[in-house]
């Protein structure tokens, strides 16, 4: 409850991001049954139609599976989840690189920046 959404992107996409995160972190392991559309809509405080759209989009990409009469489940396919993880990592790195490049950083500078960031205490567990 009390979710705040980014104004610049469709809400269903932001719910997709949240569900992707839950799956990749392992909070929702393969085969987990998802809440009903209504229940998730109440949790997020959004229109149930938005959650339906989220579920059907995730079914289309294979991340969720709808079983007739039983509900919606996280895919059992580890390969799909691994692929999702790689895809999200690639996407975030691309965003990061675009931002660095827009600041005029060269690849070498970025690499040195990452190395020195990792040497700073606190960030050891990267």
């Amino acid at each position: 409850m009390a979710y705040t959404f980014d104004n610049s992107r469709p809400i269903y996409q932001q719910i997709i991001d949240t569900i992707h995160g839950n799956i990749i972190r392992g909070e929702w392991p393969p085969g987990t049954k998802l809440p009903s559309v209504r229940a998730l809509a109440v949790d997020f405080g959004v229109n149930p139609n938005t959650v339906s759209r989220t579920y059907s989009e995730l079914e289309r990409t294979g991340v969720l599976e709808m079983k007739r009469g039983q509900g919606t489940f996280v895919t059992e396919s580890e390969a799909t989840i691994q692929q999702l993880k790689q895809q999200l990592m690639h996407q975030r790195i691309k965003e990061f690189m675009n931002e660095m490049e827009s600041l005029g950083m060269s690849k070498a500078e970025i690499r040195r920046g990452i190395d020195s960031y990792r040497k700073d205490d606190d960030h050891d567990n990267l």
Partner: peptide, 10 residues
């Protein structure tokens, strides 16, 4: 949702 998609605003 189309408003957010097309115009990037709420």
């Amino acid at each position: 949702e189309a408003i957010r998609e097309q115009f990037g605003v709420d």
